[in-house]
Design a protein around this nucleic acid. Structure first.
Length: 624
RNA sequence: GGGGGCGUAGCUCAGUUGGUUAGAGUGUCGGCCUGUCACGCCGAAGGUCGCGGGUUCGAGCCCCGUCGCUCCCGCCA
């Protein structure tokens, strides 16, 4: 086509096209996002993808796109480049050469940073052609997830995803800079490690050298980072890949994800908060694009309080609704509503909901029954009648005036407001339904404020919980957390003293933003005796604990500093900042919900030879 | 493992109570068009209605099964 002659056979003055070609970069002198009015008159070369072509017969426009932007290029039929340019279709990769010209006032495109100029095509080189696209790059339409994932390289060309992934990179580099500025040091930890008995399901990697033995991919570098503290490195961080073989959710990638993993020595819980808060606050402010971030220090909310007031351990504080316990009101002798007697009853205020139609209340009731497995969601609508509050709705008739007034006071409601009730014999279930109802009400009544970030710490998690199915005590969260309990008394605990044990809090905390759990952390248990006792309570004999955690227990017997840390989820941070509600929108090459990589074909079958080397034989599950 | 939603042209979707040859937009191909920027106009090609079975004179539509995608529950120290 129109390649520059490199043998010098065509002579030319310094002003000839030939001179410019020879001294011009083979692919580009500028990017597609670079040219402005100041460049008018320059002879330039651009390379990129054909974003869009507009054929006017007598005039052909090609919008050329690369990572940096879009530049309009134009060619007329009498140009020697027209025939070649006319062949170009969407997503072909081409190189164009020609002068930058100013657009006339009427033809300037204000939407485009390069919209004041265009490149008049004198020469086109087709670098790569494209078949008809399974997924158009141009436009903002939504496409099926499987097509997007199979042709991820096309999806990634699209503006929104391209920007999200670029944003992710910027967020990570900002985090890294802020951590280093705070005196943290980045270290790598192994990817092939040992399976650990607690927590999620492991991904296993068979060992070739050791028949019948397996590595596991780390669920998190938990033990390693504690060992780094024992090794005296004081402040560690890592953008750490974590692998868990559990089912996916919109906010939980299948298989793998990244954490800002960090650990510090000689710290209290407040020291960890003080180290993490400015990093998160700083990075969210940096990329907030006008959205407010709540001020430091972030509120600390005890777990019990969160479960009462918000019905979840990850409250969305953009939602002003606060749940109240009203069990006592329904236990009063003058309240004859049998369905709520002797149950935990939580009241969810719905300010302004009195104006909603009957269908609004019915819909919530249906939702509670069908999706939450509840018997229903009772409600009362408050109305002002001559300066006094009157109750309306199906259960209002069971509530005498003074009980009604008490409810309104507890829920801080006035006429025109409504109050929903979540009741269950089990406190946890009443709280959970109330929590979900709070979220729905906040959204449907428009009370949850968009466009802001509300962080909080949830603190004082219980160390243990009762496993009803197996009738035993389990760790409720991280087994390596330090119990917030007198050491001597802890070591002397009777493992059957269930009431005392279930009341023990741990130095364990989550950080939550807008109802999304960003991280879980703890002050660690660095005392081997306390650790053995803690595991004994959860049903692990000393021998088992010694065997399973020998590496760490041993280390703690050679001088271990008190230490603690946390690990905010990188993907979720980027998701929040990008304003997306699915992790796949901020992950370059995600797997689908069934943990398959549709582009690369993973997981895939392997050869018999590979299996033999690994001493593995496949046993297919029986179909039935 | 369980529940909900979806599956119709390359892509996004419509398709009435079960009734003639399954439509639109976009993309593709062809024609026209010198200032568009979602260019416009005319025309054409493009369909195993996810797959299998059933009911029916007749199924995109109803029933059963199955597969795929997705959201949720379980699970996620």
């Amino acid at each position: 086509m129109c390649r520059p002659a490199l043998d010098g056979s065509r002579g030319g003055s310094p002003h000839s096209a030939f001179f410019l070609e020879v001294f011009m970069h083979a692919y580009r002198t500028h990017t597609c996002g670079q040219l402005r009015k100041e460049a008018v008159g320059q002879h330039v070369r651009l390379s990129g993808w054909v974003h869009r072509r507009r054929d006017h017969g007598g005039l052909l426009f090609i919008d050329l796109r690369d990572h940096y932007g879009v530049t309009q290029c134009v060619v007329e039929p009498d140009s020697p480049a027209f025939a070649e340019a006319d062949k170009c279709r969407s997503e072909w990769v081409i190189t164009v050469t020609g002068p930058v010209v100013a657009r006339t006032a009427e033809t300037v495109n204000r939407e485009l940073p390069t919209g004041e100029v265009e490149v008049r095509i004198e020469e086109v080189t087709i670098q790569s052609v494209a078949q008809e696209l399974p997924l158009p790059v141009f436009g903002e339409l939504d496409y099926p997830e499987d097509v997007r994932l199979k042709y991820r390289f096309l999806d990634l060309r699209r503006d929104r995803l391209h920007r999200n992934i670029t944003l992710r990179s910027k967020v990570i580099s900002s985090i890294r800079r802020r951590m280093i500025e705070q005196g943290f040091t980045e270290f790598q930890t192994p990817i092939l490690t040992a399976s650990s008995p607690e927590g999620a399901r492991d991904f296993l990697v068979p060992s070739r050298l050791h028949p019948g033995k397996f590595y596991a991919l780390p669920q998190a570098p938990q033990q390693f980072k504690q060992l780094i503290m024992v090794a005296g490195f004081d402040r560690y961080f890592q953008i750490a890949p974590c692998f868990r073989d559990e089912d996916a959710r919109a906010d939980r990638s299948p298989g793998e994800f990244y954490q800002l993993d960090l650990e510090m020595s000689f710290v209290t819980q407040e020291d960890v908060f003080a180290a993490v808060e400015p990093v998160l606050h700083g990075v969210f402010e940096e990329f907030s694009a006008g959205r407010a971030v709540n001020a430091l220090p972030f509120p600390r909310i005890p777990y019990e309080e969160s479960m009462l007031k918000y019905g979840v351990d990850k409250p969305d504080l953009r939602n002003p609704i606060v749940i109240a316990d009203v069990s006592d009101v329904f236990s009063r002798k003058d309240v004859e509503f049998k369905a709520f007697k002797d149950k935990t009853v939580r009241a969810i205020p719905a300010p302004g909901a009195g104006a909603q139609p009957r269908s609004f209340f019915d819909r919530l009731n249906d939702w509670a029954k069908s999706e939450m497995g509840a018997t229903g969601l009772g409600y009362v609508v408050f109305e002002s009648e001559g300066g006094k509050l009157a109750g309306k709705g199906p259960i209002a008739k069971f509530l005498p005036a003074d009980s009604l007034a008490l409810l309104a006071e507890r829920a801080n409601l006035v006429g025109g407001d409504a109050l929903f009730f979540s009741a269950d014999a089990k406190k946890d279930r009443a709280a959970a339904l109330a929590g979900q109802a709070r979220i729905r009400l906040g959204k449907e009544l428009g009370l949850t404020q968009e466009g802001r970030f509300e962080f909080c710490w949830i603190v004082d998690f219980p160390m243990y919980e009762w496993n009803e199915e197996e009738k035993k005590i389990d760790f409720s969260h991280n087994p390596f957390s330090m119990p917030n309990f007198d050491r001597t008394k802890f070591l002397a605990l009777d493992p059957n003293d269930r009431d005392t044990i279930l009341g023990i809090k741990a130095f364990q905390y989550d950080i939550v933003c807008n109802g999304v759990e960003l991280s879980s952390g703890a002050i660690r248990n660095h005392d081997p005796d306390v650790m053995l006792k803690a595991f004994e309570i959860a049903g692990y004999s000393r021998e088992v604990t010694e065997a399973k955690f020998s590496g760490m227990l041993n280390a703690f017997r050679y001088g271990a500093p008190p230490h603690g840390g946390t690990a905010p989820g990188i993907d979720r941070i980027v998701m929040l900042i990008a304003g997306e509600d699915n992790l796949r929108e901020v992950t370059m090459f995600p797997m689908n919900q069934q943990a398959e990589d549709l582009m690369m074909g993973a997981p895939g079958e392997v050869s018999q030879r590979q299996l033999r080397e690994l001493h593995i034989r496949i046993v297919q599950p029986e179909k039935g």
